[in-house]
């Protein structure tokens, strides 16, 4: 038992693998955000028009807002079930830094939501008359933006997990904080259609990702300690 390295890295991988395993055993919860993403995107042609020029004009915003909402609706799964069955208090009392545990959980959440949303986004983009040669930029913005959405969202879930009905409140807390990511992500996709240079937005998205990667685990840990009292 002694002598085995028991550091933060093993804690991270242990928690990450457990959450991935749990997600795989809950297939429906894995598919729900994706189905939501597909349905919301397909509502726009139905509600607006099937004219390909109109669709192309709204495509960046539609794809980004739908991905953002799908992520938001899936956020509760980061901490909700752990809170309800008492695992969360065990994690908080674990000897490992809570921020590392949070990071492991958020990484697993992103792999089971944001990453999958990013992977199916090209198919949806094509359905909105999106030019195939520009799909790369769309995927890049989502790849850089959705982890930040999960990270910021984890603060909101940590703050509301102790409340019986936190759903709408969570949206109220989190959506204003999502605005910069939406602005940079959607505008990058939009400008890439017009063959403009979007490196600036991609750098900004990356900067926001690095910033939230360093700061949000601490905020989320502090929030968890408060709501578990």
């Amino acid at each position: 038992m002694e002598g085995v390295p028991n550091n933060a890295v093993t804690a991270f991988t242990t928690i990450f693998r457990r959450d991935i395993k749990l997600a795989l055993r809950h297939r429906s919860e894995l598919i729900n955000p994706l189905a939501f993403f597909v349905i919301v995107v397909s509502l726009f042609p139905l509600g607006l028009s099937t004219d390909s020029r109109t669709l192309l004009q709204i495509a960046p915003a539609v794809l980004w807002i739908s991905a953002l909402l799908a992520t938001m609706l899936s956020l509760e799964s980061i901490f909700r079930s752990d809170y309800e069955d008492g695992s969360l208090e065990q994690l908080v009392l674990s000897e490992h830094p809570l921020s590392v545990i949070v990071l492991g959980k958020v990484a697993a959440h992103w792999c089971t939501t944001g990453l999958l949303l990013t992977l199916i986004s090209p198919a949806l983009a094509i359905s909105l008359a999106f030019p195939p040669q520009k799909l790369g930029i769309l995927v890049w913005t989502l790849l850089l933006g959705t982890p930040t959405l999960s990270l910021i969202g984890s603060i909101g879930v940590a703050l509301t997990v102790g409340l019986r009905r936190g759903g709408i409140l969570l949206a109220l807390l989190i959506l204003p904080l999502y605005i910069p990511i939406l602005i940079f992500g959607a505008s990058a996709v939009d400008m890439s259609i017009d063959d403009l240079d979007v490196a600036g937005q991609l750098y900004l998205l990356a900067a926001l990702l690095v910033l939230s990667l360093t700061l949000t685990p601490f905020a989320t840990s502090a929030a968890l300690r408060v709501t578990l009292e």
């Binding site: 603060i155 703050l159 904080l177 910069p180 905020a219 929030a223």
Partner: peptide
């Protein structure tokens, strides 16, 4: 905590 998170985000927003 939310207020502090907000204050970090105000300049970014």
């Amino acid at each position: 905590i939310l207020a502090i998170v907000g204050v970090v985000n105000v300049p970014i927003i």
